[in-house]
Amino acid sequence: MSATETPTNPLVRMMGQVWGSIFRHGLPTSDKVAARTALTNFFLHIHPVRVKKSAIRVSYTLCLGGLSFFLFIVLTISGLFLMFYYIPSVDQAYQNIKDLQFVATFGLVIRNLHRWAAHAMVITVWLHMARVFYQGAYKPPREFNWTIGTLLLLTTLLLSFSGYLLPWDQLAVWAITVGTNMAKYAPIAGPYTRYIMLGGRNVGQGALIRFYVLHVIALPLIGFLLMVVHFWRVRKDGFTGGL
């Protein structure tokens, strides 16, 4: 964008000013403009201005970390829509899901999207971990980011697990019954752990509200915070780059 050609029409000039105040640098016609755009844009600032060619080759990251994050965003947005219809009560939850499937416009697609994206995220996060391992990308100075990654993997699993109960159908309740039964086996603390998880001895209203709160607030917040730190460290340490 050059500042030389000032339009005469005041309305056009004002629109130009509005546009220019939001998008400061125009299209990336040269490396210099591109670099300035990346530097001054909040969302682009998560990236360094320049990256090693070897680090952004698709064959290096396979996009898996980025895709995991993208799926997290898809899940947040589709989950938000689901929350408009879903009431975490054993009397209503199942009917809410039925309504989503058969009454609410696009409810079915949004529910499907949320479900399949959740499965996909477990897979992409696990594969991301595998690629980081095989490339030895956890070696110094990135040891601690691997640890944060491990916590992210656990958070992802718990997010998926807590969501599993919410439809309140046979699949949900029994999967959670089997899942939480495993916790029972820990010595001494086991039975208490299960009781705390379920808010009772069986999977009932107590468990539903606990899983709901964990699923829509606590775990996404924890996951988001861990991701922020994870990305910050990737940004500061740089990509490991080609072998």
Partner: peptide, 17 residues
């Protein structure tokens, strides 16, 4: 060798998403 993140990397991320 390095390249500018924007648009080289951003474009790939966009396509992947």
């Amino acid at each position: 060798e390095t390249v500018v993140t924007f648009p080289a990397l951003i474009f790939r991320e966009f396509l992947a998403g």
